[in-house]
Design a protein around this nucleic acid. Structure first.
Lengths: 344, 344
DNA sequence: CCGTGTTACGGAAGCGCTTTCGTAAAGCGC
DNA sequence: GCGCTTTACGAAAGCGCTTCCGTAACACGG
């Protein structure tokens, strides 16, 4: 698309204010070397003219970059839109722009998006969402981000990645453990897990937490049916069909994300199976609708918006010697979808 | 934040390829005036070096802008995140970046965000979400956007605004009518409306549709309790409390958005009121969880993602003589939250 | 063989800003 | 009053790219 040329340049402001370009620039940037009187005058003229500096020129000239790139799987997914909301909120406070793009959980596409963001000379790149268990999947992205950091860019990631960058780490393992322990404490022994793509670290970690709890509960992890699918409602639904067919004795289902848990509930409702009387369901994430489902969903809350805020806040600080890592809390939220194991 | 200086410039590529800056630029832009052989060679060198052009320099130099600004109320709101998803999808196909910011439904903040987007020299600005009934509320935004268009920028809005720009118009009035007619056809006569801020055109339009249907149904619009609140779940919840208190004979509630309808359902559940046996509930929008609530929510579907796609698609076409306006469809989706008026 | 197009490329002028450097004016002690 | 530093400002050099213009090199018809 064609460039939009706003005729209004700093030169116009300078001329009208009767000062030089340099002085005008300094005045507007709030830099010193200009008397308060002149500075104020320039600012007034600029304001009155409705002048807005050209970011491109400003950045090119060696000023500062004021955009942050955010890569999410898909902004329509509540998990990511809540993270984005946190990022945008913090960005708004600092007058930064947030550029969002979709990775579609495709390492290749993710790489291309990173390239684009770098081309746009963002100062900060935030990668939200799970990393890949196989380091090779993200090798190119990693190289690009490392180069980006080497040249002064800041990177922070949300979730476990094979990247040397500041990281916000949702405690997926503890969250998984928490979900499993909750079911165990209710007496459930026949538990099934609706899992996600096993290439993702998030899946790996959550499963690890669940496995740990299961074993500590005296059960054998390998006896537990784990259905790998994708992180969507429909996958949850289909996985549930499979569980009902292959493991009819199941009394509790853990879905690795709330999105899938919604599908699980939907499938159970379609089959007329009472929740939690016959089967208990627990999710992970606590997306905002979890409380409004019926039965309301027992889940483990991860503070998505806060994670977004934190990720940007970390990136805004100067790079530290070694990458910072902040774990977020998690919190079991018991609602109506879980109950004691059915007697009999 | 400091600028990230990638040492890699087009000059480096040109030198390594043994051509001039001009030729290198042309080769990479795919412009003609370069032999295929040389062009291919330059492209290869660039690729191998991992060169990515500096957008700022490119834009400054009179190239084209490749960013679109999107203003939403709040990206965490499913209504807007679905719109954003559509915008980002189309943008991705064209290698455009999408900058998202929050207006918070505050005209002043909206104006500031527009300024920022303009400063970033976006070529396209998309304003999503309701306009304000009072033209003065958006006067400054309007002026800024008009100037933006005058200087070659493209603007499209989603929802009815007092702006001369291409518009995607969700048919709010018809949607409202549809919701009301559905309840009337089920025999409901004692209907209450959970409304939103009456400063918004969306509210005005949806109410108008409802009012029309009500009157055509032989009822008096002014007899219908309309509770103005804000567009949130919690407002829906509180409004419902008020309805139950002040209008206990109500048999059906229309919530102007699904978010509020979720709150309505929640309040009714808390009071142990059967839906739809005692009270029917209908929402508007059809956000993706509407189908998974229990009872699943009868609502009127607006194609949010498609609206986002359309808005960007329109803006990508050259400006037309008179602003284009595209109405979107709407579709009543009958689910379990509505039923015949209780006998007795 | 000359004039005229045509093609392929290089030189160089900006795009609008920041920033370094230079300089005039002002302030200071003696 | 003279030299010194300090302050307030202007001139000009880029930042990395696109694009206008100029110029060889070559092909063509007459």
């Amino acid at each position: 698309m064609p460039r939009s040329r706003s005729a209004l340049r700093l030169a116009d402001v300078a001329e009208l204010a009767g000062v030089s370009l340099a002085t005008a620039s300094r005045a507007l940037a709030g830099r010193d070397g200009v008397s308060d009187k002149v500075a104020e005058h320039v600012r007034q003229v600029a304001n009155q003219l409705g002048y807005v500096a050209n970011m491109h020129a400003r950045t090119l000239a060696g000023g500062s970059t004021s955009t942050v790139g955010l890569i999410v799987h898909e902004i329509g997914d509540p998990y990511f839109s809540e993270i984005a909301s946190g990022v945008i909120r913090v960005a708004g406070e600092r007058d930064l722009m947030v550029q969002i793009c979709h990775s579609g959980r495709d390492p290749e596409k993710e790489f291309r998006q990173i390239q684009t963001i770098i081309a746009h000379r963002a100062g900060i790149i935030i990668v939200a969402g799970s990393g890949y268990c196989d380091p090779r999947a993200q090798a190119r992205s990693k190289a690009a981000l490392t180069a980006f950091q080497a040249s002064g860019g800041r990177v922070s990631v949300i979730g476990r990645h094979h990247l040397t960058a500041d990281a916000v780490l949702p405690d997926n393992e503890a969250a998984g453990r928490s979900a499993a322990e909750h079911l165990l404490s209710l007496g459930h022994r026949r538990i099934a897990v609706v899992s996600g793509p096993d290439s993702l670290t998030t899946v790996e970690d959550r499963l690890a937490g669940i496995a740990g709890a299961i074993q500590r509960g005296g059960l054998t992890w390998s006896d537990i049916p784990v259905i790998p699918t994708s992180f969507t409602r429909d996958s949850g639904l289909q996985a549930t069909e499979q569980i009902l067919r292959d493991h009819p004795e199941t009394t509790a289902i853990i879905a690795l994300t709330d999105a899938m848990a919604i599908g699980v509930l939907s499938a159970l409702r379609a089959h007329g199976i009472a929740v939690p009387d016959r089967i208990s369901v627990v999710g992970l994430d606590d997306v905002s609708v979890a409380a409004d489902l019926a039965p309301s969903l027992t889940t483990v809350r991860l503070p998505m918006a806060a994670m977004g805020e934190l990720a940007l806040a970390m990136a805004l600080k100067p790079q530290s010697q070694r990458p910072r890592r902040k774990s977020t809390g998690h919190q079991l939220v018991v609602r109506d979808s879980t109950g004691p194991v059915p007697s009999g």
